[in-house]
Design a protein around this nucleic acid. Structure first.
Lengths: 150, 150
DNA sequence: ATATTTTTGTTGCAAATACAATAATATTAA
DNA sequence: TTAATATTATTGTATTTGCAACAAAAATAT
């Protein structure tokens, strides 16, 4: 069995760890950059969707986003037609650090892809997207309380 | 910029989350399966090396491994020649659940690679290993307190 | 129209995570 | 050989994480 998931886990933990260390400089604590990026990219998105996008527990997302709000990086706005949801928007402060997060992420991507040809980059992105689509089905299934059989 | 790291993060979180849910059945709490697998694969390995392999903070590994020991999955043995290190070995109990962990991981790998040809599997493994090698250099650098410049 | 189910959000609690600091041995340099 | 540095392991503390349980609104079924 080709252990691709082990490689993926190692890469993810290593780079998340680096990012968390580097973003302390901008007063972002562990994990917060993930949420802020998604909210900047999709202003008006709701919390539930953010959790789904980054594949994190709903309650974890809830608390991270609450903290982002308390620290003035984002704001929650009520929706006119739907009293249940709260739309999320970056504040000026949030928008201002977004480029720094992008810059860091771009650098990490560049480091990760060092020595890769253009074609190899295309290939790995395509293959990873397919893996992600395969995997997110199971994630949603299991998160809803279902049991995989194997 | 091709966002391969975003895909990798999503995949890693999704599958780690699934594994943690599935391994509760074997009385393994969050993250523990990672350590147990490595110790089963390399009996006699020391804690510091395990942390390096899975790319997790040394102190996190220390506590996870201590808990594995307390729960009877592994044991620590003193080394004859080196008083500083403690070698790690799976107990009978640990060895017994190892195949179940493998089985789960194999299933997740299979799900992840659904629709892939043999050649694509070879390719993605090769590319991911290269990414991992690129990335682990930076991780060690930053973890030692150094600052990346970009 | 009413009942049921799903979606969205929150909080209590227990546990994992990681930074900082400390200690002890081992390794390397002077 | 002694001094300086690196490696390995541990603990204190603060924070994050996620399951369980709950509540309220919305969507769907009867």
């Amino acid at each position: 069995m080709k252990e691709i998931l082990r490689e993926i886990g190692m890469i993810a933990r290593a780079l998340d760890s680096i990012s968390n260390i580097e973003f302390k400089e901008y007063d972002l604590t562990r994990g917060q950059y993930l949420y802020l990026v998604r909210i900047c990219e999709s202003p008006g998105i709701i919390q539930e969707k953010v959790a789904e996008l980054i594949k994190v527990d709903r309650t974890t997302a809830a608390r991270s986003i609450k903290k982002l709000e308390m620290n003035g990086f984002i704001e929650k706005k009520e929706d006119e037609h739907n009293k249940k949801i709260k739309k999320l928007y970056p504040t000026e402060k949030g928008k201002k650090i977004f480029p720094f997060i992008k810059r860091e992420n771009d650098h990490s991507n560049a480091v990760a892809l060092e020595g890769f040809t253009e074609e190899e980059i295309e290939t790995i992105l395509d293959l990873l997207q397919r893996v992600r689509r395969n995997v997110e089905k199971d994630w949603e299934f299991v998160k809803k309380g279902n049991k995989r059989s194997y």
